[in-house]
Amino acid sequence: MKIRVGHLYPDYLNIYADRGNIAVLAARARARGHELDVLAIGMRDPVPIGTVDLFYVGGGQDREQELVAHDLVAKAEPLREAVERGAAFLAVCGGYQLLGRSYLDGAGNELSGIGLLPLHTVAGDRRMIGDVLLDCDWAGETLAGFENHAGRTILDAGAEPLGRVVAGFGNDGASGYEGCRYRQAYGTYLHGPLLPRNPWLADRLLEAALAHAGVEERLEPLADELEREAHAVSAARARSRGGRY
């Protein structure tokens, strides 16, 4: 089966391992006999309607993020519709912020997001930097990663977070929650090699993408020894030195 991936702004939002996350999706799809077909969706490119099973948007530095923000707003409608129709979506760091309604920067300028996730973000004066560990009880799994963001993301009442913060700052350093999920869209501050060391999330995204493509399939587990070891080290790091106020 071909899984069609739409990678948004790979030339702009590519800091830290965003291509690594794609490589993990590709390798894990291949191990189950599927193929990833990755389409780069850049500035002014149209969003294909109904033919993308999984969207990905990564993180960037403030400058790059500002450059794409205006363009993304023009893509809001087809992206929201795709998620309503069951397409999977992973948004990391800067990309996560842009999926919310708005981002208010330090100078008081408001950057419009696309309102795909029920949240908004306000720049803080202290960066939240460090290892993070999340408990995702909805999946019976944990996520280990690294966060580095000045934005404080505030979820709307009733919005589903991605996980409860076991160690680290999370969305705003105060709520005790990190990330957001809506249907098959997942947003998170955990950047970098999120999927390599948390392969269960990669598999969940692939299953959702396959379902969108019309294939209901429970993916066979892989050996994942290196993955488990990397996860354990990363989780231990978060427990011993995750950020806190």
């Binding site: 590519n14 830290y16 391992a17 690594g20 930097i129 690294f146 970098g192 090699p193 390599p196 790091r237």
Partner: peptide, 9 residues
């Protein structure tokens, strides 16, 4: 660097 993400770049 405490963040080892850079190796993926």
């Amino acid at each position: 660097g405490r963040d080892v993400s850079w190796i993926w770049d």
